[in-house]
Design a protein around this nucleic acid. Structure first.
Lengths: 123, 123
DNA sequence: CAGGATCCGTGATGATACTG
DNA sequence: CAGTATCATCACGGATCCTG
């Protein structure tokens, strides 16, 4: 099926080859992981997310949230109030992703300097 | 420094706000994680990578590898032979990322069906 | 074999303005 | 407040051809 089918020269183990790409196409975009990370400790409102995630545009936040809701990683709850209040929260499925996001974030913070250094010293 | 500076309404913890974006801009592209994942068990040659990572174009593999080498996540070793042989391998730094990639890949495989199901059922 | 160079489409992203 | 709508752009990435 969707496996490598490589006779035996390079060692598989992560059998796939498609699922990863597929999922990465969804959560591997510019903002999804940031949004999930922002929601790691509890629900946030649209405006809170916008301020929390530096640099994201209103449009991108809207689209990213929509995708995450579609994929079932985030839930959206609108309260019939005025002014409107909408809260976003990671679903149960989304919760399983949170640890990975945190790990990735910590890795990023721990190694950014190193990476930047490598990058500059590269001629 | 590079921290939220958000008075106290939403709970930080991952202090950053920029490092994650920064690193994600590098390894969060379409292929980098796949390449790192492909190299998780040892060095591979250019052609092997090309066959291993389904769907990648020659150009993208070249570019991705170049970036990964620049960032110090992958090392490139060219052997003065004919025909030429070039091997790519994760560096020490890159090795620290491998577990995360594997975790992400496993998460992706474990949850792709669920996500796809959510996505279809979404009207 | 490994990869550089070029052309080029199109989708993702951002800025801005408007609305329920 | 929480979006939607529209427009312009630009980098991503594919196809193709070429070279050491």
């Amino acid at each position: 099926m969707t496996q490598f089918t490589r006779n035996g020269n390079c060692p598989p183990r992560i059998k796939d080859g498609g699922a990863v790409r597929e999922v990465l196409d969804r959560i591997g975009d510019k903002w999804s992981l940031l949004v999930v990370g922002a929601l790691r400790e509890g629900p946030l409102r649209f405006g809170e997310l916008e301020k929390t995630i530096e640099g994201i545009s209103q449009r991108m936040l809207t689209l990213t949230l929509k995708h995450l809701v579609e994929d079932g990683l985030v839930s959206r709850t609108a309260y019939a109030e005025v002014p409107p209040r909408v809260e976003y929260e990671v679903t149960e499925l989304g919760t399983t992703l949170v640890p990975l996001v945190i790990a990735l974030a910590e890795w990023a913070m721990a190694n950014r300097d190193q990476i930047n250094a490598n990058r500059s010293s590269y001629r």
